[in-house]
């Protein structure tokens, strides 16, 4: 595991910064997009960290039924449109 990924704070910050930067145009990303932030790590390792961010309520999933995407918790236009928030 790279230093970046093994440092939880730094890893979280990397992901959050990336998502914040893109937030204006897009709030949901594929897992692959997040993997690009950790070029030195294997997807299966990155998955563990990203999923902890979900249980830590930093990120949340979004699903089309067939594909899943990741975004910052509560971000995006559809959450409101669905009348669930």
């Amino acid at each position: 595991m790279s230093e970046l990924l093994s440092n939880k704070e730094l890893a979280n910050k990397t992901v959050v910064d990336f998502l914040k930067k893109k937030e204006k145009t897009k709030t949901k990303f594929y897992f692959n997009d997040l993997c690009k932030l950790f070029p030195d790590d294997k997807p299966r390792q990155i998955k563990k960290i990203i999923n902890v961010m979900v249980t830590d309520e930093i990120l949340e999933y979004w699903s089309s039924g067939s594909t899943t995407m990741y975004g910052l918790k509560g971000a995006g236009k559809q959450a409101a449109a669905e009348g669930e928030k």
Partner: peptide
């Protein structure tokens, strides 16, 4: 544009 994220629709 109010309800959807345009880049996501494009990518879909």
């Amino acid at each position: 544009d109010k309800i959807c994220e345009i880049p996501l629709a494009i990518k879909a």
